[in-house]
Design a protein around this nucleic acid. Structure first.
Lengths: 184, 184
DNA sequence: GATTCCTTGTAGCAACTGCTACATGGTATC
DNA sequence: GATACCATGTAGCAGTTGCTACAAGGAATC
């Protein structure tokens, strides 16, 4: 691996931490370069342009997220949708995962705005979510798997969004209330 | 009403349409001025600064949203949470309201980034949501009203977020699947 | 030893950002 | 008719944005 590739990898690693810590708030080229510990000139030597930086970093973050989701709820024993939602909710609102979900909401908004490279990132991460849910979902024959998977994801993302907006610690109570709303 | 105030009102009205149509994508001062049909110089004559423009416009949009929510589901007969979610979901994913929800998601993300004046806007709109749900929620004695209200809002917002990300028309199937997930 | 490529720094450009100083014509008030 | 205020245009400022031209030191290759 050339020096360039090694530095590129190191930059991606550092910037993943930066995005998870600060969201998309400090993502000008110079701010990214500073967070990566290099000059902006060098950042654009390692990457073609800003969009490529963000795409590489977000791909790394998405990989990390899907890894954690996979080990939090293995795909061995499919769960009824309500139980899957419960367990996923408990996990994603936990202190460890909140920053991932918060960044995810910001990325979705950036994609809605059409800002490159976020639409592509969102499509990729969303496909990963769908797949994750699909392989863990115990549904009766003839049910709408796609629709149900989307609904499960919606509930999880909704919890994250409200969590972002709330200053006090509403998440546990919200998750508990949600649990009683779900059918067995 | 002075000319200035009249023009200010007209600008707010036009800009509300602009934000609902384009989200937060085109919100530089010059772009806002162009959408309002005035020069950027005049926009800053009607408003103190950009944050005041956005605050005024978002307040208008929030008022419109709460008006529509109120008339879509009147507060006369409280509903069980599952039924409230069903009806709210059907309404907010409809063609009329999607642009409101999409803008809402963008505003939440901007608030998460700490961008003025969005944190204040989010607090205000969120309080309105909570109140809207609270006055329509039929809950047994001793239940966690705040937690349940937050959960209801989370589900609604989650549907909107997934709706934004999906190119095909998944919303109706998602809402239907969600409906079967909810307990009676 | 000459040449070429990898790596890095300095400097800067053109576009855009939010915002402002200044001038000017009009209208109302005294 | 003088004065003051309202409304609006022209011009531009300082800062930030993404990105680039150019040069140069060092290592590798011929």
């Amino acid at each position: 691996m050339s020096i360039r590739d090694a530095q590129r990898e190191a930059a991606i690693e550092r910037l993943a931490g930066h995005l998870l810590a600060h969201g998309l708030a400090r993502t000008s080229l110079r701010q990214l370069a500073s967070a990566a510990g290099v000059s902006d000139r060098m950042l654009l030597y390692y990457f073609a342009d800003k969009a490529e930086v963000l795409a590489a970093v977000m791909t790394r973050v998405a990989g990390e997220l899907s890894l954690r989701l996979a080990e939090a709820i293995p795909d061995g024993a499919p769960l009824k949708p309500a139980e899957l939602v419960r367990r996923a909710a408990a996990f994603t609102t936990g202190p460890e995962m909140r920053r991932f979900m918060r960044l995810w909401v910001e990325v979705v908004a950036a994609a809605a705005r059409g800002e490159a490279p976020f639409p592509a990132i969102v499509a990729q991460v969303m496909a990963g979510f769908r797949d994750w849910v699909d392989t863990r979902l115990d549904l009766p024959e003839g049910a709408d798997r796609e629709g149900t998977a989307a609904a499960v994801i919606a509930v999880i993302d909704g919890l994250a969004l409200v969590d972002i907006c709330s200053e006090d610690e509403i998440a546990p109570r919200m998750a508990a209330a949600l649990s009683t709303l779900l059918a067995e």
